[in-house]
Amino acid sequence: MVENPASSSEYIQHHLVNLPLNLRNFTLTPDGGFWTLNLDTIGFALFLGISFCLIFRCVAKRATSGVPKGWQNFVEMLVSFVDTQVRETFHGTNKLIAPLALTIFVWVFLMNFMDLLPVDLLPLGARLAGVEHLRVVPTTDPNLTIGMALSVFCLILFFNVKAKGFKGMGKELLHSPFPYLLPLNIVFRLIEEISKPISLSLRLFGNLYAGELIFILIALLPWWTQWLLGVPWAIFHILIVVLQAFIFMMLTIVYLSMAHESH
């Protein structure tokens, strides 16, 4: 809780700065330009992703075809859910799509879920440990969402080439949607393709960033009103957290299936 407006805006600003690592001189300063690593984003993303991998790996190792128990039940529920979505959307067989979708769904969900931790809990701990800035929700960092979207974009290109070959893809690029309207077709196609990673990344980033910002704003209110707004927003945010993870996964599947089939 902060009293005056100046410190309020400072508080907000403070919460929106990443923990930087300058890759030029390996100091924790933000002046590295492009060669700066957001340690908090990378760290939390890695921690959550590795947790996901380890837990799922443990379950996969011990998976029995008998009666599933506990974690296996949970994991199988997720796996069959993702598998159903992929089967319904992606026509054709590809070994990559379903594991990719599962990874996206669980990883993005876990990163989004960090938003439901109290905004000051981990930064406070970090400050006690001597770290000035810490942002705990990796998906509020556009670097992560754009990174993921670019990876998906690369896969879209790869699938295009794989399904149609360079020749077929070139033909499609030149002759659709309008036959023989070459320049227009290329412009259309470029816009279409480039809009995919942008919408994919900015949607996730925007939703989570806004959610985080509202939590920060709620944290600025007097303590006795916080639960009044914080609780409904947190409950609503549970929905957003799952929904955004699902949308990212679903759109990835849709884009890849579009790439796999001809226009």
Binding site: N18, L23, G32, G33, F34, W35, T36, L37, N38, T41, I42, A45, L46, G49, T103, W107, D141, N143, L144, I146, G147, M148, L150, S151
Partner: peptide, 11 residues
């Protein structure tokens, strides 16, 4: 910044 590349690799 370079976080983007790091995340792509991690992903």
């Amino acid at each position: 910044n370079a976080t983007l590349l790091g995340e792509m690799i991690t992903f």
